[in-house]
């Protein structure tokens, strides 16, 4: 067990180091954008946060389906971890976006479809976590968390595609062709960095959830159902 946690921690530390390198490139090596100037450097944290938040929510969706299918508590713990880390990145994404918007668009916020669906995404998954905290029985909690996660996930592809489907203030996705090559490197480094950090945090959060479950069942042995595995792994 110690070895496993150590493995994930190594991943996390690697991510932290990479985030420093990527941000160094983003802040000091990459050129300022020809029209936006320095403020465009927010991109190197904003876009990776957006990508990885959506990766986290997608992972939560997959974990939820698996958990609902086989009923193993470890998938409930992983779902919870992925949602919580996704929500943290989601919140950061909104704040970074707001700062960037003020400088380039001229407003802190607007009810444009990309901004609205991103905010809704945070509220939906925060709602799943809230729902979770209201259910005492661990089996029911796992089931309802999974169902709510699957339904909340509907908004995630919407966040991605809305700028292509509808008119918006937010621009559409950039591609390597629309981004200067010097800007692509820090973007990719930070995306990998935040992905590694997210995996690390999700593992920690899932571990916490498993420990909580174990404690719940020690406190109330009557609730332990046959077939419910409590594993440390």
């Amino acid at each position: 067990m110690t070895r496993r946690i150590f493995g994930v921690r190594t991943l996390g530390l690697l991510g932290l180091g990479l985030l420093l390198v990527g941000s160094y490139f983003g802040l000091f090596v990459a050129p300022a954008e020809r029209y936006m100037g320095q403020v465009q450097r927010i991109m190197y944290v904003h876009v990776p946060c957006a990508w990885i938040a959506m990766v986290c929510y997608t992972a939560a969706f997959v974990f939820a389906v698996i958990g609902l299918w086989n009923g193993k508590p470890r998938w409930d713990a992983r779902t919870t971890g992925a949602i919580e880390v996704g929500a943290v990145l989601n919140a950061l994404l909104l704040v970074q976006g707001s700062i960037w918007a003020r400088a380039t668009w001229g407003v802190w916020w607007d009810w444009d479809v990309r901004l609205t669906t991103s905010l809704v995404m945070l509220l939906l998954f925060a709602g799943v976590l809230a729902l979770r905290s209201f259910v005492d029985d661990s089996d029911r909690r796992a089931t309802w968390t999974a169902v709510a996660t699957i339904v909340a996930f509907v908004d995630v592809p919407l966040v991605y595609f809305c700028v292509r489907w509808w008119r918006s203030l937010h621009q559409t996705q950039s591609t390597p062709e629309t981004v200067s090559p010097a800007m692509v490197l820090p973007l990719r480094l930070n995306a990998i960095a935040i992905l590694l950090i997210a995996i690390w945090l999700i593992a920690q959060r899932a571990k916490l959830e498993r420990e909580r479950l174990r404690k719940e069942q020690v406190d109330e042995p009557a609730r332990v159902t046959a077939g419910l595995e409590v594993t440390d792994a």
Partner: peptide, 16 residues
């Protein structure tokens, strides 16, 4: 004009 500069960048990175 609303001019965005380093202060906005620092704020965004610091909050992150």
């Amino acid at each position: 004009t609303i001019v965005g500069g380093w202060s906005y960048v620092i704020a965004a990175y610091a909050i992150t």
